[in-house]
Amino acid sequence: MSDVVRLEYRNVTMRFAATGNRGVLTAVQGVSFSVRDGEVVSLIGPSGCGKSTLLNIGSGLTAPSEGTAFVDGERVAGPNAHVAFMLQKDLLLPWRTVAENVMFGVEIQGVAAAERRQRAQALLENFSLAEFSNHYPHQLSGGMRQRVALARTLAVDPHVLLLDEPFSAVDAQTRMVLQRDLAQTLKLAGKTALLITHDLAEAVTLSDRVLVMSRRPGAIIDEIVIDMAERDNPIARRHDPKVNDYVARLMDRLDIGHASLEQPAAGGGA
């Protein structure tokens, strides 16, 4: 990890025209933070606090109402090749084989065919999916599909990965395996990542830092540095009792004990 800043949000505010009643809805209010090279930072907060909005701004899909996002020191003005995102939905294309799905991004970016195949093959071997490279998505389990999605994200060799609840749709045990794969891959490749999650233990075991967001309008209300070893091994981290302390602290910050179900604390299958 170096001190080079890979991803930065500077005073980002996002407003939407509210549906139904006329008016303006502020999703995110004055958010500033930065993620250094090789760092993994998690964003947690109640549903609707604008976490996904921040991710869309970082990937250049939406422009903020105020403030600026920077990737590698450059202002984000639209989608750019240094950032790749991954969602809870695997978004695999059913008419493409596993290998073709992995190549989707590099194909759009115009990487030569031989190079694409080579990258896909290497990634699939890494994720023990090589024997499935000619299968179609419907033939795979949910965990495998999500792994293919991760391979597709990595295939474009991004500097920054934006991950929006990537594992919340798979079962608890598969999730732990996927978390381990992700952690190892991020460490090995030295990738920078911003992870949005509702799973507090996931945030603690995978990250170097956790940022806590408030209810809408979302603002960052706390930053917790995870002072634990083995960021590349979340399963080992889970055995460490310190995880419980961090989770307890996050619960307090999120005020989960007093949250009403009017605004569910966890959504999206988490």
Binding site: N56, S59, G60, L61, P79, N80, A81, V83, A84, F85, L87, K89, L91, L93, W95, F104, G105, E107, I108, Q109, V156
Partner: peptide, 28 residues
């Protein structure tokens, strides 16, 4: 699925690429 379109856009797909790689096959 708008997320599919966004995925392609995030990879800097052109309008034609979005049509031929996503919309056209989805409509089959």
């Amino acid at each position: 699925d708008p997320d599919l379109i966004n995925l392609a856009r995030a990879f800097k797909a052109t309008r034609a690429q979005i049509f031929w790689k996503i919309e056209f096959p989805t409509s089959m």
